[in-house]
Simulated assay, not measured.
Amino acid sequence: MSSSSSSISPPPSYSPRSIDHMLSGACAGIIAGGATHPLDVIRLRQQLRAGWQWRYPGLCAALMKEAIFSAGRIGFYQMCTGGDQRRSFARGDSAIRFAAGGAAGVVGTVLSHPLELMKVVKVASPSNPSYIRIFRNLFRQQDLFRALLPAVQRSVVFSAAQLGSYDVCKRKVRAMDPELDYRYAVLLSAWLAGIASTILSTPLDVAKTRLIVSDFRGTYDCLRCIAQYEGVRYLWKGATATWLRLGPYTLVQMLVWEASLESIRRQRTSSV
């Protein structure tokens, strides 16, 4: 395949460093999170069974959360898996990719959880309080890490499914057609990763959202109560909005991530 057939075709002489992936991940998270924030608000309101409003609060907290979450998650994932997205890996390494994705989700969630709380409170509150007031109340009540465990549980599943399946699918796609434009391999792999992460993580995402604003004894108790009193189908409440968000979110995030790495590669190699 000629270098002109794809705009994502970096020279093999430079392998991105962890900081490169962190910067690219932060950029990808901000752009993807900002583009899909209205759908995220709809998802939260469906999960909270709140009424429809033509407002999309929480954008500032969402963007800051995405920057920290994506930088920590992607940076740690690449530290565990070797750094270069283009490098091939053996069949037995697939399990490592999924495990690394789950561990990376823990890192990103712990770093960004207070901002996630602020976003959910902003969306859920009809009075639309200021971020300063929300932070002050959470800090005073020592609730900056409220519902951290369910958030970590959800993120482990989500990140393992998204990052792991993205890498594995991309390897499979490129193995089936080595001449395929790299951009198409990224698009197809990101689309499949979005489906996998939505199906697997939605019940835990519903529990995480409910636990932030309601009193349950834990994730299992929350899931049990939802299934018992509202119906099993409500465990996937907001799944359509989640998919409508995670599909474009994953596509945009992976494309921006890869394009940012491409730009960094070119700058590094041209400076040598």
Results as ranks from 00 to 15, higher is better:
residue 156 V to Y: 03
residue 149 L to H: 11
residue 10 P to E: 01
residue 116 E to F: 11
residue 107 V to Y: 11
residue 75 G to I: 01
residue 157 V to R: 01
residue 181 D to F: 06
residue 36 T to W: 05
residue 120 V to H: 00
residue 185 A to Q: 05
residue 236 W to C: 09
residue 253 Q to L: 12
residue 47 Q to L: 04
residue 272 V to S: 15
residue 255 L to V: 10
residue 20 D to W: 05
residue 210 R to V: 04
residue 94 S to M: 06
residue 204 L to E: 01
residue 190 A to Q: 09
residue 110 V to Q: 04
residue 224 R to T: 02
residue 15 S to D: 13
residue 22 M to I: 08
residue 242 T to W: 04
residue 219 T to G: 03
residue 121 V to E: 03
residue 132 I to P: 01
residue 107 V to L: 06
residue 72 G to R: 04
residue 36 T to Y: 04
residue 41 V to F: 03
residue 51 G to P: 06
residue 202 T to F: 04
residue 132 I to K: 14
residue 262 E to H: 14
residue 125 S to R: 07
residue 101 G to Q: 02
residue 131 Y to M: 09
residue 13 S to Q: 14
residue 176 M to G: 12
residue 53 Q to I: 15
residue 34 G to P: 06
residue 246 L to D: 07
residue 212 I to D: 00
residue 255 L to F: 12
residue 124 A to F: 04
residue 270 S to K: 15
residue 238 G to D: 05
residue 215 D to A: 09
residue 127 S to F: 12
residue 121 V to L: 09
residue 195 I to M: 11
residue 200 L to C: 15
residue 82 G to R: 02
residue 157 V to S: 03
residue 231 G to R: 10
residue 184 Y to D: 05
residue 36 T to S: 08
residue 223 L to S: 00
residue 30 I to M: 14
residue 136 R to V: 07
residue 226 I to G: 03
residue 74 I to L: 08
residue 181 D to Q: 13
residue 256 V to H: 01
residue 3 S to N: 14
residue 58 G to H: 03
residue 136 R to W: 09
residue 167 D to A: 08
residue 11 P to I: 15
residue 232 V to H: 13
residue 267 Q to Y: 12
residue 183 R to V: 08
residue 145 F to G: 01
